[in-house]
Amino acid sequence: MMADTYKGFKSKEAFMKYTEIYGRVMNHWTVKTESSNIVTSFGDVHVINAGHHDGRPLVFFHAFGFSAAMWYGVADYLKDHYRLYFIDVLGEFNMSNTKDHLNEREDYIEWITEVLDALGIDQADMIGHSNGGWHVLNYALLKPERVNEILLLAPAASMKRMNLSFYMRLALTNLFPNRQNIVSSFCRWLTHERKPEQEDLFELYYIGQTRVVWEYVMTPPKMFKNEELSQLSVPVTVAVGENEVIYKPSKLKKAAQEKLPQCSVSMINKAAHMIPIEAPEEIANLIQSIFSHNDREKSV
Protein backbone atom coordinates (compact mmCIF):
# COMPACT_ATOMS: atom_id res chain seq x y z
CA MET A 1 0.00 0.00 0.00
CA MET A 2 1.31 3.44 -0.94
CA ALA A 3 1.56 5.88 1.97
CA ASP A 4 0.56 9.57 1.96
CA THR A 5 -0.87 9.53 -1.55
CA TYR A 6 -3.87 11.49 -2.76
CA LYS A 7 -5.76 10.70 -5.98
CA GLY A 8 -2.62 9.31 -7.59
CA PHE A 9 -0.38 12.16 -6.42
CA LYS A 10 2.29 12.15 -3.74
CA SER A 11 0.20 14.23 -1.33
CA LYS A 12 -2.90 16.38 -1.12
CA GLU A 13 -0.66 19.42 -1.55
CA ALA A 14 0.78 17.95 -4.76
CA PHE A 15 -2.73 17.33 -6.09
CA MET A 16 -3.79 20.87 -5.21
CA LYS A 17 -0.78 22.28 -7.05
CA TYR A 18 -1.69 20.19 -10.09
CA THR A 19 -5.30 21.40 -9.82
CA GLU A 20 -4.08 25.00 -9.74
CA ILE A 21 -2.11 24.61 -12.99
CA TYR A 22 -4.98 22.64 -14.57
CA GLY A 23 -7.17 25.64 -13.85
CA ARG A 24 -4.61 27.92 -15.46
CA VAL A 25 -4.78 25.86 -18.67
CA MET A 26 -8.59 25.90 -18.51
CA ASN A 27 -8.41 29.71 -18.52
CA HIS A 28 -7.34 29.42 -22.16
CA TRP A 29 -10.73 27.94 -23.03
CA THR A 30 -13.07 30.51 -24.56
CA VAL A 31 -15.89 27.97 -24.48
CA LYS A 32 -18.28 27.53 -21.58
CA THR A 33 -17.49 24.18 -19.95
CA GLU A 34 -18.92 21.92 -17.30
CA SER A 35 -17.14 19.10 -15.49
CA SER A 36 -18.49 15.75 -14.39
CA ASN A 37 -17.05 12.68 -12.70
CA ILE A 38 -18.19 9.24 -13.80
CA VAL A 39 -17.63 6.25 -11.52
CA THR A 40 -16.30 3.21 -13.40
CA SER A 41 -14.88 -0.19 -12.51
CA PHE A 42 -11.32 1.16 -12.71
CA GLY A 43 -11.72 4.59 -11.18
CA ASP A 44 -13.49 7.93 -11.29
CA VAL A 45 -13.28 9.52 -14.75
CA HIS A 46 -13.22 13.29 -15.08
CA VAL A 47 -14.98 14.63 -18.18
CA ILE A 48 -15.05 18.18 -19.54
CA ASN A 49 -18.38 18.85 -21.29
CA ALA A 50 -18.81 21.69 -23.78
CA GLY A 51 -20.58 22.75 -26.94
CA HIS A 52 -24.14 22.58 -28.22
CA HIS A 53 -26.37 20.46 -25.99
CA ASP A 54 -28.36 19.14 -28.95
CA GLY A 55 -25.35 18.69 -31.23
CA ARG A 56 -23.84 15.47 -32.45
CA PRO A 57 -21.66 14.03 -29.63
CA LEU A 58 -17.90 13.80 -30.17
CA VAL A 59 -15.63 12.06 -27.63
CA PHE A 60 -11.99 13.16 -27.31
CA PHE A 61 -8.97 11.34 -25.82
CA HIS A 62 -5.83 13.36 -25.10
CA ALA A 63 -2.10 12.73 -25.51
CA PHE A 64 -0.37 11.02 -22.60
CA GLY A 65 0.16 13.39 -19.69
CA PHE A 66 -1.37 16.47 -21.32
CA SER A 67 -4.90 15.91 -19.97
CA ALA A 68 -8.31 16.82 -21.34
CA ALA A 69 -7.43 20.49 -20.79
CA MET A 70 -5.25 20.39 -23.93
CA TRP A 71 -8.23 20.72 -26.32
CA TYR A 72 -8.87 24.43 -25.63
CA GLY A 73 -8.19 25.60 -29.18
CA VAL A 74 -10.14 22.89 -30.97
CA ALA A 75 -13.20 23.29 -28.74
CA ASP A 76 -13.60 26.94 -29.69
CA TYR A 77 -14.13 26.08 -33.37
CA LEU A 78 -16.57 23.22 -32.67
CA LYS A 79 -18.74 24.59 -29.88
CA ASP A 80 -21.65 25.73 -32.04
CA HIS A 81 -22.10 22.45 -33.93
CA TYR A 82 -21.31 19.52 -31.63
CA ARG A 83 -21.70 18.25 -28.08
CA LEU A 84 -18.13 17.78 -26.94
CA TYR A 85 -16.82 15.36 -24.31
CA PHE A 86 -13.14 15.55 -23.35
CA ILE A 87 -12.00 12.56 -21.27
CA ASP A 88 -9.20 12.58 -18.69
CA VAL A 89 -7.81 9.12 -19.41
CA LEU A 90 -7.42 6.70 -16.49
CA GLY A 91 -3.92 5.49 -15.66
CA GLU A 92 -2.27 8.87 -16.21
CA PHE A 93 -1.69 12.05 -14.21
CA ASN A 94 -4.77 14.23 -14.64
CA MET A 95 -8.06 14.96 -12.87
CA SER A 96 -9.35 11.38 -13.08
CA ASN A 97 -8.72 9.10 -10.13
CA THR A 98 -7.42 5.63 -11.04
CA LYS A 99 -8.31 2.96 -8.49
CA ASP A 100 -7.24 -0.31 -10.11
CA HIS A 101 -4.59 -1.75 -12.43
CA LEU A 102 -5.09 -1.44 -16.19
CA ASN A 103 -3.18 -4.53 -17.22
CA GLU A 104 -4.97 -5.49 -20.42
CA ARG A 105 -6.36 -3.81 -23.51
CA GLU A 106 -9.78 -5.05 -22.45
CA ASP A 107 -9.57 -3.07 -19.19
CA TYR A 108 -9.73 0.18 -21.17
CA ILE A 109 -12.68 -1.15 -23.14
CA GLU A 110 -14.58 -1.71 -19.90
CA TRP A 111 -14.20 1.73 -18.37
CA ILE A 112 -14.63 3.60 -21.66
CA THR A 113 -17.86 1.69 -22.30
CA GLU A 114 -19.06 2.60 -18.82
CA VAL A 115 -18.32 6.26 -19.56
CA LEU A 116 -20.23 6.12 -22.86
CA ASP A 117 -23.16 4.48 -21.09
CA ALA A 118 -23.18 7.21 -18.45
CA LEU A 119 -23.11 9.88 -21.15
CA GLY A 120 -25.98 8.19 -23.01
CA ILE A 121 -23.92 7.59 -26.17
CA ASP A 122 -24.89 4.35 -27.91
CA GLN A 123 -22.46 4.70 -30.81
CA ALA A 124 -19.53 7.10 -30.50
CA ASP A 125 -17.57 9.28 -32.87
CA MET A 126 -14.08 9.36 -31.36
CA ILE A 127 -11.04 11.60 -31.77
CA GLY A 128 -7.74 10.62 -30.17
CA HIS A 129 -4.37 12.34 -30.12
CA SER A 130 -1.07 10.44 -29.67
CA ASN A 131 -1.65 7.94 -26.84
CA GLY A 132 -5.31 8.92 -27.05
CA GLY A 133 -5.22 7.79 -30.66
CA TRP A 134 -4.04 4.38 -29.49
CA HIS A 135 -6.99 4.20 -27.07
CA VAL A 136 -9.45 5.15 -29.79
CA LEU A 137 -8.07 2.59 -32.24
CA ASN A 138 -7.97 -0.07 -29.52
CA TYR A 139 -11.62 0.62 -28.71
CA ALA A 140 -12.66 0.53 -32.36
CA LEU A 141 -10.91 -2.82 -32.82
CA LEU A 142 -12.34 -4.51 -29.72
CA LYS A 143 -15.74 -2.81 -29.46
CA PRO A 144 -16.71 -1.84 -33.03
CA GLU A 145 -20.44 -2.02 -32.34
CA ARG A 146 -20.09 1.06 -30.10
CA VAL A 147 -18.10 3.11 -32.64
CA ASN A 148 -19.35 5.07 -35.62
CA GLU A 149 -16.19 6.69 -37.02
CA ILE A 150 -12.74 7.63 -35.68
CA LEU A 151 -10.06 10.26 -36.20
CA LEU A 152 -6.49 9.46 -35.12
CA LEU A 153 -4.18 12.45 -34.65
CA ALA A 154 -0.52 11.35 -34.75
CA PRO A 155 -1.33 8.06 -32.97
CA ALA A 156 1.34 6.66 -30.65
CA ALA A 157 2.72 3.28 -31.82
CA SER A 158 -0.43 1.52 -33.14
CA MET A 159 0.73 1.01 -36.76
CA LYS A 160 4.18 2.70 -36.85
CA ARG A 161 6.93 2.33 -34.28
CA MET A 162 8.10 5.52 -32.62
CA ASN A 163 11.72 6.50 -33.17
CA LEU A 164 14.69 6.18 -30.84
CA SER A 165 14.87 9.92 -30.24
CA PHE A 166 11.42 9.90 -28.69
CA TYR A 167 12.26 7.07 -26.31
CA MET A 168 15.58 8.65 -25.32
CA ARG A 169 13.96 11.97 -24.48
CA LEU A 170 11.14 10.25 -22.62
CA ALA A 171 13.65 8.17 -20.65
CA LEU A 172 15.51 11.31 -19.60
CA THR A 173 12.29 12.81 -18.22
CA ASN A 174 11.96 9.76 -15.98
CA LEU A 175 15.61 9.33 -15.02
CA PHE A 176 16.24 13.03 -14.41
CA PRO A 177 12.83 14.67 -13.95
CA ASN A 178 13.91 18.29 -13.98
CA ARG A 179 12.36 21.21 -15.84
CA GLN A 180 15.05 21.23 -18.52
CA ASN A 181 14.45 17.59 -19.50
CA ILE A 182 10.68 17.64 -19.18
CA VAL A 183 9.72 21.05 -20.55
CA SER A 184 12.58 22.18 -22.77
CA SER A 185 13.90 18.91 -24.16
CA PHE A 186 10.63 16.99 -24.35
CA CYS A 187 7.44 19.08 -24.40
CA ARG A 188 8.81 21.88 -26.57
CA TRP A 189 10.48 19.34 -28.86
CA LEU A 190 7.02 17.96 -29.62
CA THR A 191 5.93 21.27 -31.16
CA HIS A 192 6.88 23.20 -34.31
CA GLU A 193 4.64 26.25 -34.12
CA ARG A 194 5.14 27.48 -30.55
CA LYS A 195 2.65 29.80 -28.86
CA PRO A 196 2.77 31.44 -25.39
CA GLU A 197 -0.27 29.58 -24.06
CA GLN A 198 1.46 26.25 -24.68
CA GLU A 199 3.76 26.96 -21.74
CA ASP A 200 0.94 26.54 -19.23
CA LEU A 201 0.15 23.13 -20.72
CA PHE A 202 3.81 22.14 -20.55
CA GLU A 203 3.93 23.30 -16.92
CA LEU A 204 0.92 21.07 -16.23
CA TYR A 205 2.79 18.10 -17.72
CA TYR A 206 5.85 18.97 -15.60
CA ILE A 207 3.87 19.26 -12.36
CA GLY A 208 2.04 16.03 -13.12
CA GLN A 209 5.13 13.98 -13.88
CA THR A 210 7.11 15.21 -10.89
CA ARG A 211 4.29 14.76 -8.39
CA VAL A 212 2.54 11.59 -9.57
CA VAL A 213 2.80 8.25 -7.78
CA TRP A 214 2.58 5.31 -10.20
CA GLU A 215 0.48 3.23 -7.84
CA TYR A 216 -1.35 1.30 -10.55
CA VAL A 217 -0.05 -0.52 -13.60
CA MET A 218 -1.13 0.87 -16.98
CA THR A 219 -0.82 -0.57 -20.48
CA PRO A 220 1.56 1.48 -22.68
CA PRO A 221 0.70 1.98 -26.37
CA LYS A 222 1.83 -0.93 -28.51
CA MET A 223 1.84 -1.93 -32.15
CA PHE A 224 -1.31 -3.72 -33.26
CA LYS A 225 -0.88 -6.80 -35.42
CA ASN A 226 -1.45 -6.28 -39.14
CA GLU A 227 -4.07 -9.02 -39.22
CA GLU A 228 -6.10 -7.24 -36.56
CA LEU A 229 -5.78 -3.83 -38.21
CA SER A 230 -6.99 -5.29 -41.49
CA GLN A 231 -10.23 -6.29 -39.76
CA LEU A 232 -11.08 -2.76 -38.61
CA SER A 233 -14.72 -2.30 -39.57
CA VAL A 234 -15.23 1.43 -38.98
CA PRO A 235 -14.14 4.37 -41.16
CA VAL A 236 -10.89 5.95 -39.97
CA THR A 237 -9.01 9.14 -40.78
CA VAL A 238 -5.39 9.63 -39.74
CA ALA A 239 -3.80 13.07 -39.46
CA VAL A 240 -0.11 13.83 -38.93
CA GLY A 241 1.93 17.01 -38.84
CA GLU A 242 4.36 17.59 -41.70
CA ASN A 243 7.07 18.20 -39.07
CA GLU A 244 6.19 15.21 -36.87
CA VAL A 245 9.07 14.16 -34.59
CA ILE A 246 8.07 10.80 -33.06
CA TYR A 247 8.29 9.13 -36.48
CA LYS A 248 8.62 10.23 -40.08
CA PRO A 249 5.21 11.48 -41.22
CA SER A 250 5.61 9.91 -44.65
CA LYS A 251 6.15 6.51 -43.05
CA LEU A 252 3.08 6.85 -40.85
CA LYS A 253 1.03 7.80 -43.91
CA LYS A 254 2.28 4.74 -45.79
CA ALA A 255 1.65 2.42 -42.83
CA ALA A 256 -1.88 3.75 -42.31
CA GLN A 257 -2.81 3.37 -45.98
CA GLU A 258 -1.37 -0.15 -46.14
CA LYS A 259 -2.68 -1.50 -42.84
CA LEU A 260 -6.05 0.15 -42.31
CA PRO A 261 -9.07 -0.44 -44.55
CA GLN A 262 -11.34 2.55 -45.22
CA CYS A 263 -8.52 4.91 -44.24
CA SER A 264 -7.73 8.41 -45.44
CA VAL A 265 -4.68 10.42 -44.36
CA SER A 266 -4.31 14.18 -43.91
CA MET A 267 -1.05 16.09 -43.53
CA ILE A 268 -1.16 19.16 -41.27
CA ASN A 269 1.05 22.04 -42.37
CA LYS A 270 3.56 23.70 -40.03
CA ALA A 271 2.91 21.30 -37.17
CA ALA A 272 4.90 18.64 -35.34
CA HIS A 273 3.39 16.20 -32.83
CA MET A 274 1.11 18.49 -30.80
CA ILE A 275 -1.20 19.26 -33.69
CA PRO A 276 -4.35 20.02 -31.62
CA ILE A 277 -2.59 22.96 -29.94
CA GLU A 278 -0.36 23.91 -32.88
CA ALA A 279 -3.07 23.89 -35.55
CA PRO A 280 -6.46 23.90 -33.78
CA GLU A 281 -8.38 25.51 -36.64
CA GLU A 282 -7.06 22.99 -39.17
CA ILE A 283 -7.93 20.09 -36.85
CA ALA A 284 -11.41 21.51 -36.21
CA ASN A 285 -11.98 21.91 -39.95
CA LEU A 286 -10.90 18.32 -40.47
CA ILE A 287 -13.27 17.14 -37.75
CA GLN A 288 -16.17 19.04 -39.31
CA SER A 289 -15.41 17.70 -42.78
CA ILE A 290 -15.35 14.11 -41.48
CA PHE A 291 -18.36 14.11 -39.24
CA SER A 292 -20.56 16.51 -41.22
CA HIS A 293 -20.00 14.25 -44.24
CA ASN A 294 -21.04 11.30 -42.10
CA ASP A 295 -24.20 13.16 -41.08
CA ARG A 296 -25.10 13.69 -44.73
CA GLU A 297 -24.61 10.01 -45.48
CA LYS A 298 -26.95 9.05 -42.64
CA SER A 299 -29.63 11.43 -43.85
CA VAL A 300 -29.71 9.91 -47.37
Rank of each mutant, 00 (worst) to 15 (best):
V59A: 05
V59H: 04
F61E: 04
F64A: 13
F66G: 02
A68W: 04
A69M: 01
M70Q: 15
M70L: 11
Y72M: 03
Y72T: 01
Y72K: 04
G73Y: 03
V74H: 06
D76Q: 14
Y77L: 02
L78V: 06
K79I: 08
K79R: 14
K79C: 06
D80K: 14
H81M: 11
F86S: 03
I87L: 06
L90Q: 05
L90K: 02
E92C: 01
S96W: 03
S96I: 09
N97M: 08
D100W: 10
D100H: 14
D100S: 15
L102I: 10
L102V: 11
E104S: 14
R105A: 12
R105Y: 12
E106V: 11
D107I: 01
D107P: 04
Y108G: 12
E110S: 13
T113R: 11
E114I: 10
E114N: 07
G120Y: 12
Q123I: 13
D125F: 15
M126S: 03
I127Y: 03
I127T: 00
G128H: 03
H129P: 12
G132S: 08
G133S: 08
W134G: 06
H135T: 11
V136P: 03
V136G: 08
K143D: 13
K143R: 14
R146V: 09
R146T: 11
V147H: 09
N148I: 10
E149C: 08
L151W: 07
L153C: 09
P155Q: 00
S158Q: 04
M162W: 10
M162R: 08
L164N: 05
R169D: 00
L170I: 01
L170M: 09
L170A: 06
A171Y: 00
A171L: 08
A171G: 13
L172F: 07
L172H: 03
N174L: 13
F176V: 12
R179C: 06
I182H: 02
V183F: 03
